[in-house]
């Protein structure tokens, strides 16, 4: 997480060149999102997303670094609690917990609180737009990103995002979100400005513990 802080200091260090599969040549980035042309199913998903105040998904994250032969693969649980924020709990290959508050502020950095107020503020600058992605709030997203939309096949869609503002634009070149009806977001593909890419694939989490459990567990708050 420390590297996030150094992001603004170090981001341009090695220059920018290559593209990957989720890069700007992806077809989604050829089609700007026009609200009037959005399919009904997708609009319904957006409305549904606004109403959802809790969900949990398993995730598998594949990070491809140019300097390494093999991707770095991790997996864990992602929990979204509308009023409290979101949690990334990595279970493999290491155990780490990242809690992000409702305004995008980092509450814990792998079981450690941010060094100080300044660091927390910086994290917020980077993380709050990402919270909007999870919430799929197109109106607010349009302030932060250039938006693109593509209907891939029936009930499957892709949203492309290109950051407009610093500091996100320094770090991320583009983001592609793929989803489908009733299944919200399936994958998030991130192309970083330093040629690295990350693909996060979400899958259904087994039924079990519900909202109250996670509220208590992560935010120590009763339902």
């Amino acid at each position: 997480m420390l590297i996030l802080l150094c992001l603004t200091v170090f981001i341009d260090f090695q220059g920018i060149s290559a593209q990957t599969a989720v890069g700007m040549d992806d077809p989604v980035f050829k089609k700007p999102l026009l609200k009037d042309n959005l399919p009904k199913d997708f609009l319904e998903t957006l409305i549904k997303m606004k109403e959802i105040d809790f969900f949990k998904l398993n995730f598998v994250q594949r990070k491809k670094l140019k300097a390494l032969k093999n991707p770095l693969v991790s997996e864990g649980l992602f929990v979204y609690l509308k009023d409290l924020g979101m949690v990334w709990e990595i279970s493999e290959p290491i155990s780490a917990l990242y809690k992000i508050g409702p305004a995008g502020q980092l509450l814990t950095d792998g079981d450690m609180t941010p060094e100080n107020q300044r660091q927390a503020l910086l994290y917020k600058e980077i993380l709050s737009p990402l919270l909007l992605i999870i919430q799929l709030d197109l109106k607010l997203l349009a302030d932060e990103f250039e938006l693109f939309f593509q209907l891939e096949e029936k009930e499957k869609w892709s949203v492309g995002l290109i950051p407009r503002k610093i500091p996100l634009a320094l770090w991320i070149r583009s983001i592609k979100i793929q989803g489908e009806k009733n299944n919200w977001i399936k994958t998030i593909s991130i192309l970083e400005t330093k040629e690295n890419s990350t693909i996060i694939t979400f899958s259904e989490n087994n039924p079990g513990n519900e909202k109250g459990f996670y509220q208590k567990r992560y935010f120590n708050k009763a339902d």
Binding site: P93, I94, A96, W171
Partner: peptide, 25 residues
Amino acid sequence: LQAQKQLYLPFSSYDGNDLINDPLF
């Protein structure tokens, strides 16, 4: 562990060369 946390953080950015030259960050 700190280095791994940086490596596996969902949203982080670093260069692969950084990892080779300074693997413990």
